[in-house]
């Protein structure tokens, strides 16, 4: 098991190679969500391009889409250039047929993928932090800020209500896809719920702040 720090370092090593273009890539972490998603699928189960493209559609549906099968092939090439995946030994052997290389994740690819997942969580936090900073800019007009928060709370409530109640209990019966759906649904519920609670808290704090400011505002 790699320590988080070691994994983080590995991630940047994994971004490039020893020369030329790969050295440049090393400095720029991969931003493509499709690339990371494809890497995740290869980590889940090594496979070849055509099958991966189909699995991609099945797993990600409308949430993330490929521009076509060739998009998958191009992305696989880039993942290979970055050293995140490698061809399975012997995948190109055989005669009379077009080569059909299979891919598996490298050790670096697995570590980089773990880091990517962790960064997604941090990005969410960062976005929420920015929202809060923007909100405090409205603090001179607490009623306005409370209004913004009320809208935010309603939209979180809608999100919460719109999600379906899982009918499967906790144990998934239909394999990885069911587990995936279950985990996503639970994460969405918990996050939407936490946001509702936070919005309520923030409105209450702002209202108290406004009340405390009232005598100052009324003073000549």
């Amino acid at each position: 098991m790699l320590r988080p720090r070691a994994r983080f370092e590995l991630h940047f090593v994994a971004m490039g190679g020893v020369n030329g273009d790969r050295a440049e890539q090393q400095a720029v972490p991969m931003q493509s969500h499709v690339g990371w998603a494809l890497l995740g699928l290869i980590i889940e189960r090594p496979s070849y391009g055509y099958e991966l493209a189909h699995r991609f559609d099945r797993v990600f549906g409308e949430k993330l889409s490929l521009a076509g099968t060739s998009h998958a092939y191009r992305t696989l090439e880039r993942l290979k250039e970055r050293g995140l995946i490698e061809e399975l030994p012997g995948a190109r052997s055989g005669s009379g047929r077009q080569p059909k290389p299979g891919y598996r994740a490298t050790r670096e690819g697995i570590a980089a993928h773990h880091d990517w997942i962790q960064r997604q969580v941090l990005d969410d936090r960062r976005r929420h932090h920015v929202f809060m900073l923007e909100l405090t800019a409205l603090v001179r007009d607490p009623d306005e800020a409370i209004g913004v928060l009320a809208g935010y709370e309603r939209s979180c409530l809608s999100d919460n209500a719109a999600s379906a109640i899982p009918s499967d209990g906790v144990a998934p019966h239909n394999g990885a896809l069911a587990l995936q759906a279950r985990l996503m649904a639970e994460e969405q519920r918990l996050m939407a719920g936490a946001r509702v609670a936070w919005a309520r808290f923030a409105r209450s704090e702002l209202a108290a702040f406004a009340r405390a400011q009232e005598p100052e505002r009324k003073a000549p």
Partner: peptide
Amino acid sequence: ELTGLTGA
């Protein structure tokens, strides 16, 4: 608890 709002 807020998860109780699901599906309402």
